[in-house]
């Protein structure tokens, strides 16, 4: 596998990067097990676990009865007894029956037992909208989890991050809720997965597997006039908005948080003190949201560097709309540009 000498980039989807990450982790560590609804022979409704049962057998990747609390609760016991479960919640809103297990046990077990029982569980959740999904298939539920102490919350926005961050989540001794923007599943990039694998396994990326907050967020576009802060499914929209803003003479820096918990305050502070203006963009409804938290942190840490109020562009405070109306709800380029216009540029 590591015989590849020259870098071989190939068109790689976000989905196949995630699939390879799980398969590589299973190959390396026999305690990694994957289970959930339809993840076996079918490969998951989004095919993210495609081929894992065939390759590793039904002991390592298997279907469960249709019961999310059961999936999460069984993962707790398996983790207590030496396994590293990677469980799939079929859709964001279908994860809600598991919340008692997640909030009351997965998040709290290490603290409850003074670190004697750690639960290295990864809960994979396809989330967000933009795919024309029906109700209960498009929620942005990250705030519920991020609000619960004891959970880590990751959300990749690119193909290479999909690979790296899922490997890291599986290797982390803490429980990680891994939010996969479902609208990115079939997005493509030219990536060399075996190079990513070697880089990860040699420790060149994610050197500290406990995922310290240092350098977690990444600046995906440099700029000087305003910081656009975002994560997960919104990053691609924000990048388009930054391009459009450049045409209007505004140089926007784009920060992809990648990890909501732990939170990278330093990267946030760096970009906002540099630009003096900030807009936070997220799909989730804005009231009491991750976006609200980011604004609060900017205000606490960067107040004297700010040239204008910090704004949010988020979903409206409504239940997720039906497919034909979702474009009105989701933050888009125009709405982000409108927010940029409000940033008191005249002085």
């Amino acid at each position: 596998m590591s015989t590849a000498t020259a870098a071989k980039t190939a068109t790689t989807t976000f989905a196949s990067a995630l699939n390879t990450a799980m398969s590589d982790a299973m190959e390396r560590d026999p305690s990694v097990v994957v289970f959930g609804e339809d993840v076996g022979p079918l490969g998951g409704v989004f095919r993210i676990t495609d081929g894992l049962t065939k390759r590793f057998g039904t002991d390592r990747c298997f279907d469960t009865p249709l019961a999310e609390s059961g999936i999460a609760g069984m993962a707790v016991g398996m983790a207590i007894n030496g396994m590293r479960p990677v469980i799939e919640m079929q859709f964001d809103a279908f994860a809600y029956p598991s919340l008692e297990q997640v909030f009351s046990h997965i998040a709290k077990m290490a603290n409850r037992t003074r670190g004697r029982v750690r639960l290295p569980i990864v809960i994979r959740i396809p989330y967000g909208g933009g795919v024309g999904g029906v109700e209960h298939h498009c929620d942005s539920s990250e705030a519920y989890y991020a609000h619960t102490a004891g959970l880590k919350v990751f959300t990749p926005a690119s193909v290479d991050d999909g690979y790296r961050m899922l490997r890291e989540a599986i290797d982390t001794d803490d429980p990680v809720v891994f939010f996969e923007p479902k609208k990115l599943y079939w997005s493509k990039a030219e990536e060399d997965l075996s190079a990513l694998r070697e880089q990860y396994e040699s420790g060149a990326s994610g050197q500290d597997h406990s995922v310290g907050p240092q350098g977690r967020a990444r600046v995906v576009r440099e700029g000087t006039d305003v910081s656009l802060i975002s994560y997960g499914p919104s990053v691609s929209t924000v990048l388009k908005a930054a391009e459009a803003a450049a045409e209007e003479g505004i140089s926007a820096e784009v920060l992809d948080l990648r990890s909501i918990v732990p939170f990278d305050d330093e990267a946030l502070q760096r970009t906002v003190t540099k630009t003096g203006r900030a807009v936070v963009v997220a799909e989730a409804q804005g009231f009491v949201s991750v976006a609200s938290e980011i604004v609060a942190r900017v205000q606490e840490r960067c107040f004297h560097s700010l040239a204008s109020p910090v704004l949010r562009v988020t979903g409206f405070d409504i239940p997720y709309p039906s497919p034909k109306l979702e474009t009105h709800h989701l933050p888009d380029v125009d709405r982000i540009l409108d927010a940029l216009d409000e940033l008191q540029w005249e002085d």
Binding site: G73, M74, I80, S104
Partner: peptide, 13 residues
């Protein structure tokens, strides 16, 4: 909730 943890411990074993 602990009944499911019991199932998980047995399953891992």
């Amino acid at each position: 909730t602990q009944l499911l943890h019991a199932v998980g411990v047995a399953h891992a074993a």
